[in-house]
């Protein structure tokens, strides 16, 4: 589902964010991406939805050569990838419902479909009751659930979550992780970057560790740090 071949990313200022990355993530896998701050986790995710392009190497997502597609095709790539951020990136002047529906509206989906899919997504994350609330009326966990609903509303085969629990307390973090796990069980490939040791250790999933732009460990049923 996701494949990186000999990928390096050197930024214009000379920072080598990723070095010679080779990574394969299969269909419907759940993978944790761990590593210290500045390791290159965010950069790796940005390569997948073409917010950044690799300096060299090949990035393949759902059989699409991401680094080769034309700019006009980027929107269609992104419709297959849901993205969740640590800082939510919700639109403050829109309600929970509108924030989620927005993701469908901008792809030109028909009205009836927008309503149905938006309600389904809110149902899945447990936010139907807060549908009419604005983001500033929500707790961190509720904001993140809204953000997840927006990411999955058009049912993409891939979900990327960049430190989704970075701003949340332990209990809420677990809720969010369980939600991501539930989405994974609905046959969505999920890639989560995190610093949360307890969660990684508790979830017993595949763990890919990167440090200084290199993959240092790739382990099934892995732990946050080397045993």
């Amino acid at each position: 589902m996701i494949e990186l071949k000999d990928v390096s990313k050197v930024f214009q200022n000379g920072v080598e964010a990723l070095l010679n990355i080779n990574l394969h993530i299969g269909r419907e896998e759940f993978v944790f991406l761990v590593g210290p701050s500045g390791a290159g986790k965010t950069t790796l995710m940005k390569l997948l939805y073409r917010e950044e392009s690799p300096s060299i190497g090949e990035v393949i997502v759902d059989r699409i050569k991401v680094n080769e597609i034309k700019e006009e095709q980027i929107p269609f790539l992104r419709r297959n990838i849901g993205v969740v951020f640590q800082d939510y990136k919700l639109l403050l002047r829109r309600t929970v419902y509108e924030n989620v529906a927005f993701a469908l509206q901008v792809t030109g989906a028909p009205r009836s479909q927008i309503r149905r899919l938006t309600m389904q997504a809110l149902e899945l994350v447990g936010m139907v009751k807060r549908a009419k609330s604005f983001p500033n009326e929500l707790s961190g966990g509720e904001k993140q659930k809204t953000c997840i609903a927006r990411a999955i509303v058009n049912n993409p085969p891939i979900l990327l979550a960049d430190e989704p629990t970075g701003n949340l307390d332990p209990q809420t973090s677990w809720d969010i992780m369980e939600l991501l796990d539930k989405i994974n069980r609905r046959k969505t490939t999920v890639l989560v970057s995190t610093h949360n040791k307890n969660i990684v250790d508790g979830m017993k999933k595949r763990v890919v560790a990167i440090e200084g732009g290199r993959i240092t460990r790739d382990q099934q049923l892995g732990m946050y740090s080397q045993q």
């Binding site: 006009e72 980027i74 929107p75 419709r79």
Partner: peptide
């Protein structure tokens, strides 16, 4: 700007 960023992120065309 955030609206536009999110529009691009969820696959809105130019």
């Amino acid at each position: 700007e955030t609206d536009i960023y999110i529009m691009k992120l969820v696959g809105a065309t130019g």
